[in-house]
Design a protein around this nucleic acid. Structure first.
Length: 591
RNA sequence: GGGGUCGUGGUGUAGCCUGGUGAACACGUCGGCCUGUCAAGCCGAAGAUCGCCAGUUCAAAUCUGGUCGACCCCGCCA
């Protein structure tokens, strides 16, 4: 061993001991006569001191630079009383160095290895291993590690087996774009990297594994966002002989365990369960952040004769009118309102009606049209939320568009106006999802809201033939601080019902056989009722670490253009490699 | 695929609107001084043809077009 201790553990109790430390040179402070180095490793920082009496050793320090890696032997001594550093965990002591070995020198790093740096993310990603050397990033990666271990602890305790589904799988044209891997043995054929191990874990249930989990990498070739990466990690699990409540109960206890183990935060369970319809109506979103106090109020019933033609016409055309009061919004400038209106239009609204509410009542915007009785009814509807200083945003359109526009306004403006209590967490289940959603672009006109293996509510099955869009799904999403962090469902285990669902979404028997034949075949041999859930692990860690971006909790993330700045992936490959795979690159102008 | 913001010594920014000065500042780096610092201090020095290409102009970091890259958002993400 090159060290007897780490850089974060020595204190006054160790005074007098001879120790060996190793780590990176964090700072050098040279006083000509005495020289201090702050030595850093994963565990912390310790000051080591070089005294001029040992001339040979002192000369050795001339070659030292920040980020050099050294090992030292020395004696732990108490610092002089007036030179102790209470800010530092090891600030009572220092090591008087007797021997030093320089393991390696460092070039000048492109940015300082400090808690707070100003380097752009581009530079940080290019030299990611240096970025990861910084204490805040070390902490993020540590919390990620703790969350992984807490997951394993908990699920192992619940009799789950950790089983590895394959990574080279069959292409499934449904859902997101697949990453493809060419087959050398079968030229012209491809493996896909899994978007999720969904059907593989279902066959695990057929295999009788009963309770499966895996911390699995998933791959989706879609455009990136602050909370989306092309390769990401899921806590994937599946259980046999369960009802929705079993899965939700397990998942929320797992979540609470992770919160407790990583940050000591107590998440009270059981969590609130909110029907999808309510979430869309009151929060305009299927992933509401309940830390934002403002809600959306439906005022369709009182808008019929409100005095404002647009609302009245909307109601006459069986649309809806809803209102959202954002506290502090009364300060918004004319220009700001114009910007918001433009945004609302991008989101599909025809416009954005506003009115201020101040000590003098309703003001500006469309308030001049309001009848007195409408103002009165508005006060009744909004109750405590009608606070002077608020800006009222009205949406009048189809319920889908109004929900989308006011829902997005709510989260965006709450953030701008500082209405979110970031010290707490909002966790809830969204349940009673529709099984299908409309999609006019598809021949079938409908598409699964979750995935095609999701079981419908037993009682709703008759409606599959008549009003499929009203059929509810046995699906549940776990929403944390406005992020969808987990989603799951009870699966269909009846081959007949499964065929029917495929048919409804436009996948004929041949198609189904071609795409999911092996699952349907497996189901012929005795399939247990089963269901499961998958957590977006990176998003979860992002919340646990208070990060703004998923990239801050992934060791080597991709940029928004889906490349890796550190290793330069994706890269061009050798012609020979392509030939072996039977591939030919077609240049843009040859197409 | 679309919209927006950005790209200037090693790092982060100013300058750009209103073209013309030795391209400024902070940190870092290098050299010197200094025996108790804590992001040490003081003195001195080096380091950028302003992402790339083209155009306008007597003259471009600055104006125009294109291109590459980063970030945010929409579409997309069963």
């Amino acid at each position: 061993m090159k060290r007897t201790h780490t850089c974060g553990e020595l204190g006054k109790n160790n005074a007098g001991q001879q120790v060996e430390l190793a780590g990176w040179v964090h700072h050098i402070r040279n006083f000509g006569g005495v020289l201090f180095i702050v030595l850093r490793d994963r565990y912390g920082k310790t000051q080591i001191t070089f005294r001029p009496e040992n001339d040979e050793l002192f000369q050795q320090t001339n070659t030292l630079h920040n980020q050099d890696v050294i090992g030292i032997t020395g004696t732990v001594v108490m610092r002089p009383a007036d030179a102790r550093n209470p800010e530092m965990k090891t600030g009572d002591i220092e090591i008087v160095v007797e021997k030093m070995e320089i393991f390696s020198h460092s070039e000048v790093p492109p940015f300082p290895i400090e808690n707070e740096i100003t380097a752009t993310e581009e530079t940080r990603l290019r030299y990611r291993y240096l970025d990861l050397r910084r204490p805040p990033m070390q902490r993020n990666i540590y919390i990620r590690h703790r969350a992984m271990q807490a997951t394993r602890e908990f699920l192992n305790g619940e009799k789950f087996w950790e089983i590895e589904p394959p990574y080279l799988v069959r292409n499934t044209p449904e859902g997101a774009r697949d990453f493809l891997v060419p087959s050398r043995n079968f030229k012209g054929r491809f493996f896909a990297l899994p978007q999720s191990p969904q059907i593989y874990k279902q066959t695990f249930m057929v295999a009788g594994f009963d309770r499966y989990y895996y911390l699995v990498k998933c791959f989706r070739d879609e455009d990136l966002r602050a909370d989306r990466q092309p390769e990401f990690t899921q806590i994937d699990l599946e259980m046999s002989f369960v009802e929705p409540n079993d899965v939700m109960s397990l998942a929320e206890r797992l979540t609470a365990h992770i919160f407790l183990q990583t940050k000591g935060y107590v998440l009270n369970t059981p969590l609130l369960r909110m029907p999808y319809d309510e979430a869309m109506l009151v929060y305009g979103s299927d992933k509401p952040d309940l830390r934002i106090p403002q809600k959306i109020y439906d005022i369709s019933d009182i808008s019929k004769n409100c005095g404002f033609g647009v609302f009245e016409k909307t109601i006459a055309n069986s649309g809806v009118v809803r209102v959202l009061a954002m506290l502090g919004g009364a300060e918004f400038s004319r220009r700001k309102i114009d910007e918001l209106t433009k945004l609302a239009q991008e989101w599909g609204a025809k416009g954005l009606a506003t009115a201020k509410y101040t000590e003098n009542g309703f003001e500006s915007g469309i308030s001049k049209f309001f009848t007195d009785s409408f103002k009165e009814s508005l006060r009744d509807k909004l109750g405590d939320e009608l606070v002077p200083g608020s800006m009222l945003f009205f949406g009048a359109d189809t319920s889908e568009i109004v929900a989308k526009v006011l829902g997005r306004m709510r989260t965006m403006l709450a953030d701008e106006l500082g209405l979110v209590d970031k010290s707490s967490h909002s966790a809830l289940w969204i349940v009673n999802f529709p099984l299908f959603e409309k999609n006019e672009d598809l021949p079938a006109g409908i598409t699964p809201a979750h995935h095609p293996f999701t079981a419908p509510f037993e009682n709703d099955i008759p409606m599959l033939d008549t009003t499929p869009l009203s059929v509810r799904a046995n699906a549940y999403d776990l929403v944390l601080d406005g992020y969808e962090v987990a989603g799951g469902s009870i699966r269909i285990h009846n081959p007949e019902l499964q065929r029917k669902i495929f048919q409804l979404i436009g996948i004929g028997p041949k198609d189904a056989e071609n795409k999911f034949g092996f699952l349907l075949e497996a189901f012929k041999y005795g399939v247990p009722p089963h269901g499961g859930i998958a957590f977006g692990f990176d998003r979860l860690v992002m919340i646990l670490t208070d990060s703004d971006s998923i990239r801050d909790v992934i060791a080597y993330p991709k940029t928004t253009a889906a490349q890796s700045l550190m290793d330069g992936a994706p890269s061009v490959v050798d012609k020979v490699q392509l030939e072996e795979l039977g591939l030919k690159i077609i240049k843009k102008d040859e197409r």
